[in-house]
Design a binder for these strands. Structure first.
Lengths: 156, 156
DNA sequence: ATAATTCGTTGTAATATACAACTGAAACTC
DNA sequence: GAGTTTCAGTTGTATATTACAACGAATTAT
């Protein structure tokens, strides 16, 4: 069983390298999976649905994007008729974003093709391995949520 | 223990969602970790060193990038004095790429800061979990190597 | 009320990328 | 061995993704 610090570092290096490789390939892979959706926007749309509506600011925070980037992406999604903006009656600064019917449908179809690709790719994994891998990824990503500040100087 | 198809699908969806979220955040995270290296090129440089020299075409294949993209990235790295091109004596079409001394050093320093970040983020993971996570990532990424064709019509 | 904060948009610029056309070099065909 | 095909890499061009800064409108705090 693993135990030495060297083994720990080796694992860390592998994790780092493989996650990086994955990230570098992700754009191209996504382009293959759904050429129809502007490709970045897909992710935002998925999050909007997942949250049952959210604000642009929430998206920016979740994906570490600038608000201007999100603003333009949402603009694209709106032009495509995939999201709607509903002004919050209590606070006119806020736009609550929701998928349109077309947006929900586009998501479903994209989701289906993505799931197929994953199913194929992970076909020979046991349920136990899949469950563990999923758990590790969740744990990894949620760890980041507590760290990310970096250059914000709050309450200054 | 997991066993039903529904549980399998649930795991697949989690894996898909979390990998996607990771990929979306990766650019911003990388920018924080090494603002000095042109940020994409870092990955290419790392692969070149890892392979003890390789061709531009190998990089394009490994990261699913167009050869023109790689060509320009290598050009940037060369201008920065981080890689050298050595024409293959046996085949004048080929340029074998190697990190320069400065390139190796830049990599080492970047690698160190990356490793620190990962160490911090994964500090509370056991060695066993790290080893398993690393193994899963390797397995996941290597699975892709056999699938990717997609729109190539070989031997037609 | 006035000031400070928050949410979002727009102007501008940098970077990353793909696709197509092209050059030079090797390999293959006959 | 001339002609064709394939391979490695570059360059022209266009698009996409993103950030930063300046701004506008609405809300909250003083």
């Amino acid at each position: 069983m693993p135990g030495t610090p060297e083994e720990r570092n080796e694992s860390l290096d592998v994790i780092q390298r493989e996650l990086t490789a994955f990230a570098r390939r992700a754009r191209a892979a996504a382009a293959r999976l759904h050429p129809e959706l502007p490709l970045v926007s897909y992710t935002l749309l998925a999050h909007i649905e997942d949250q049952h509506g959210c604000r642009a600011t929430d998206l920016a925070a979740h994906y570490m994007l600038d608000k201007s980037t999100v603003s333009r992406q949402i603009g694209t999604l709106e032009k495509l008729g995939l999201v709607e903006r509903h002004p919050d009656p209590d606070d006119h600064r806020i736009q609550v974003l929701h998928p349109t019917a077309a947006g929900t449908q586009a998501l479903a179809s994209t989701q289906a093709s993505r799931r197929m690709a994953y199913q194929e790719r992970l076909a020979d994994w046991t349920e136990e391995d899949l469950a563990r891998f999923a758990k590790y990824l969740l744990r990894y990503n949620s760890a980041g949520d507590t760290v990310p500040p970096a250059q914000q100087t709050p309450k200054a």
